[in-house]
């Protein structure tokens, strides 16, 4: 068991080292995210009252679309040079590889959110983090996105037109997560009754628990030839 966590840590550390060395994904993710936020502000009058109804949507679309950019990049590093094959040859559990990469993707997503959140709040003069429960929503959504994002980046990297394949596979599966994230964020932005967010938190939690378990079970046979 100790070896399992050691392996997860080794993969995580290596991924973060590559990322901080090149800053390739986080830079493009952050710029793309800010660009999305800016472009979306043209569809509504940013100072109007109706913004509270769409702010959650714009925020999460910006995060998810720029996240897609980063996922593809991270997996490309594994395929170039055949490293993924080499890691699979090592005496470690394949799911340790998965969870290492998943955690690395999650760290990138959290960094992205730390960059986008304050700027978004200033642009739209909205306080997204008005309630501590919003931190839980941020965490659960980031978890869900990174979890399935990591799996589908492993899958789509082996296909032709991989850049197009990842969002095509990932977005439909993530519909419950996207809905939950947007609608619960809107509750906090509008200052509504927080009880309304409980059901969304339940959906996010159920989604995460089920798919963590499913991936844990199927991942070894998906990567084994």
């Amino acid at each position: 068991m100790i070896n399992y966590f050691k392996a997860v840590y080794a993969i995580l550390k290596k991924d973060l080292m590559v990322e901080f060395r090149t800053k390739e994904s986080i830079n493009s993710m952050a710029v793309f995210g800010l660009l999305t936020v800016t472009v979306f502000s043209f569809i509504l009058e940013p100072s109007s009252d109706s913004k509270v109804e769409v702010a959650g949507g714009i925020f999460w679309i910006a995060i998810i679309f720029s996240g897609l950019l980063g996922l593809g990049k991270s997996m490309l590093n594994e395929v170039n040079g055949g490293n993924f094959e080499a890691i699979l040859l090592a005496p470690i559990d394949p799911t340790a590889i998965f969870f290492g990469k998943f955690l690395a993707n999650m760290v990138s997503m959290i960094l992205l959110e730390i960059i986008i959140l304050p700027i978004f709040s200033v642009f739209y003069s909205i306080n997204i983090l008005s309630h501590p429960l919003m931190l839980l929503i941020l965490f659960l959504t980031t978890y869900a996105f990174s979890l399935l994002g990591t799996l589908f980046s492993v899958i789509s990297v082996k296909s032709r037109s991989r850049e197009a394949m990842l969002p095509l596979l990932l977005l439909p599966i993530l519909i419950p997560v996207i809905l939950a994230a947007i609608l619960s964020t809107n509750i906090f932005v509008a200052g509504g009754d927080i009880v309304g967010s409980y059901n969304w938190i339940k959906i996010l939690s159920v989604f995460n628990i089920i798919f963590t378990a499913v991936i844990f079970v199927i991942f070894p046979s998906v990567v084994e030839e």
């Binding site: 050691k6 080794a10 290596k14 080292m17 590559v18 060395r21 055949g82 890691i87």
Partner: peptide, 20 residues
């Protein structure tokens, strides 16, 4: 195929694989 990460140094690459 080299089985090495091109954006890491040789030393980092080898230590990574050693840790696995």
């Amino acid at each position: 195929q080299p089985f090495l990460y091109e954006n890491l140094t040789a030393y980092e690459n080898l230590l990574f694989y050693a840790s696995l």
